[in-house]
C-alpha cells in the first residue's frame, strides 16, 4: 500500500551575538529508490542563500549554502512530498557461509567495520553470537533488534547526538539513533553488513489523509543478507509506508541532517520541528 507524505523539517539557529559567516550542509532530501519516490523537494533558508546541490559518496543529496551577512538567527526549512510503499519481506537468499565469502566481505567491508559511533563492544558481541547461534541471518536481525528493544529504555534526552552505541549500552537507555547504533554493532559483530538510515516516521498507523502530526527525525537500519532490506529496531517494525528515508551511511556521522561552521555568533541554540502530513 502506498502513502503520500509531506515532510516539513524546520531547523532554527539562534546566536547570542551576530554570526558573520556560516557554511552549512544539509542532508534533508529524501532519496528516490525502489521503495519510495520523491515528488517534490525544496529547501528554504532565512536569510536567503544560494543552494548548491551535489550527491555525496553515500548517494545522499547534499544541499550546501553559505551566509556572509551578520545574522543572529538562521532557519532552514526542508519541504518534501514523498510517495512511500509498504514493507518488503526480509531477504533470505544468503546463509552464514555465503556472508563469509571473500567477495561479500570485500564488497561490504565498510558496513562490517566498527566506527566511532559503533565501536567494538565485547559484551554486545558475545550477546550477538548467542542470539544468532541457531538462526538464519535474517532471523538473527529480528532476534537482535528485539533483544535491544527489551534491554534499552526509550528516553529522549538521555543521550546526545554524540553518544556512541557503547554510551547508550552502558546507560541502558537512549533514542532511535542509539537503538540503531547498538543494533549495528551487534550485526557487524556476527558478519551481517549493516548500515544506518536517517529519515522520518509518521506516528499514526491508521491516519486519514489530510492529518498532520508532529514528528521527529528517525533512524533505523538496513542489513544485507543477499540484498539490502530495512528494519526499524526502535519500534520493532518493518520499514514501510510510514517511513521516509533520507540518508544512509555507516553511522550517524555519515548522515548528519545539518552541519555547519560559523564565525562569531557567541553561543548558539538550536530548535528542530518536524511536521508530517499524510496527503494520500
Amino acid at each position: 500500500m502506498n502513502w503520500r507524505l509531506r515532510v516539513v523539517h524546520r531547523t532554527g539557529y539562534h546566536y547570542t551575538l551576530p554570526a558573520t559567516q556560516s557554511y552549512n550542509e544539509a542532508r534533508l532530501t529524501p532519496r528516490s529508490d525502489h521503495t519510495q519516490t520523491v515528488v517534490t523537494n525544496r529547501l528554504d533558508t532565512t536569510p536567503a542563500t544560494r543552494e548548491y546541490r551535489y550527491t555525496d559518496y553515500w548517494g545522499t543529496v547534499v544541499s550546501a549554502f553559505d551566509l556572509h551577512t551578520p545574522h543572529t538567527a538562521f532557519s532552514v526549512v526542508a519541504t518534501s512530498v514523498v510517495t512511500t510503499s509498504g514493507p518488503r519481506p526480509p531477504i533470505r537468499t544468503h546463509t552464514w557461509a555465503d556472508l563469509r565469502r571473500p567477495d561479500v566481505t570485500d564488497a561490504y567491508a565498510e558496513y562490517l567495520q566498527p566506527t566511532a559511533y559503533t565501536p567494538l563492544d565485547a559484551e554486545l558481541e558475545r550477546m550477538a553470537h548467542t542470539l544468532s547461534a541457531r538462526t538464519t541471518p535474517a532471523d538473527a536481525v529480528f532476534a537482535i533488534a528485539q533483544w535491544v528493544r527489551d534491554e534499552l529504555t526509550y528516553r529522549p534526552g538521555s543521550t546526545g547526538v554524540h553518544s556512541s552505541a557503547s554510551d547508550a549500552w552502558l546507560a541502558r537507555e537512549g533514542v532511535c539513533q542509539d537503538y540503531a547504533h547498538v543494533v549495528l554493532v551487534m550485526l557487524r559483530a556476527i558478519g551481517i553488513p549493516a548500515r544506518y538510515v536517517s529519515g522520518y516516521l509518521y506516528g499514526e498507523p491508521r491516519a486519514r489523509p489530510g492529518r498532520t502530526v508532529h514528528g521527529e527525525s528517525h533512524a533505523w537500519v538496513e542489513v544485507w543478507t543477499g540484498g539490502w532490506w530495512a528494519y526499524d529496531p526502535t519500534n520493532a517494525l518493518p520499514v514501510g509506508a510510514r517511513h521516509v528515508s533520507v540518508a544512509r551511511g555507516r553511522d550517524y556521522a555519515d548522515v548528519t541532517p545539518l552541519k555547519g561552521v560559523f564565525t562569531g555568533g557567541g553561543t548558539s541554540t538550536l530548535d528542530v520541528a518536524v511536521h508530517l502530513t499524510r496527503l494520500g
Partner: peptide, 8 residues
C-alpha cells in the same frame, strides 16, 4: 585492487 582496501 580489492575494494575493501580502499573503503577501509
Amino acid at each position: 585492487l580489492p575494494r575493501r582496501l580502499v573503503t577501509a
